[in-house]
Amino acid sequence: MSTVLETRNLVKRFGGFVATDNVSLTVQRGARHALIGPNGAGKTTLINLLTGSLKPTSGRVVLEGEDITGLPVHRRVSRGLARTFQVNQLFPDFTPLESVVLAINERERLGASAWAPLAAHAEAVDEAAGLLERFGLTDVMGERTSHLPYGKQRLLEIALAFAAKPRVLLLDEPAAGVPEEERHEVLAIVRALPAEVTVILIEHDMDLVFSFADRISVLVAGALFTEGTVAEIAADPRVKAIYLGEDA
């Protein structure tokens, strides 16, 4: 296995507060890598540093051997680093079809094409239709996103990230807020993601983490606390103590 994504001594300070404390993380290609930690451990900050929404105070982010620390968000996306958000970030007035077509167009560098209508780019449309079918959104693809039930919006959230054909996909609590009856559909989609796509999962639900991940990193107070296989982490008394100390 080879390394697909790594951080080198990543530090992020907000004023005097150290949100990310010298994190060096290595993610293997094709891994199902979970990132866990109590509230306030700096998981979201770390994700934002990876995707480029935040600039680190010091340290590097390396994707497939190339330093991407200085690249803006959209350039990282086109290099294959996509994410979903814990709280849906969608286009409320778009239909799912328009949203997915947008993502595909941008990936194919059609986004600046300003003459032919959307429908003229037949390959993108076909791909969008296929993607929507795969994510169970075909029957609602023409409706306004804001009118969709939450579970469907959640699927669209993942579909949008997936449309970028990511090599590394960051899933931020993919099942958060989804009602019980729609939950299995979302989880089935997550489990069915192709093996060549590396998945980094940020999750609070330990059952989901232990059933899905093959490797786990534990963040505490902004720093990497420990890292290991599922069995190692499950057996680690210190990790248990951290979680028992908090709520689990």
Binding site: T51, S53, P72, V73, H74, V77, S78, A82, R83, F85, Q89, L90, F91, P92, D93, F94, L102, A103, E106, R107, G111, L160, A161, A163, A164
Partner: peptide
């Protein structure tokens, strides 16, 4: 509509 997400699909 959503600048954060727009950047995140590569716009």
């Amino acid at each position: 509509a959503n600048r954060v997400r727009a950047a995140m699909v590569g716009v």
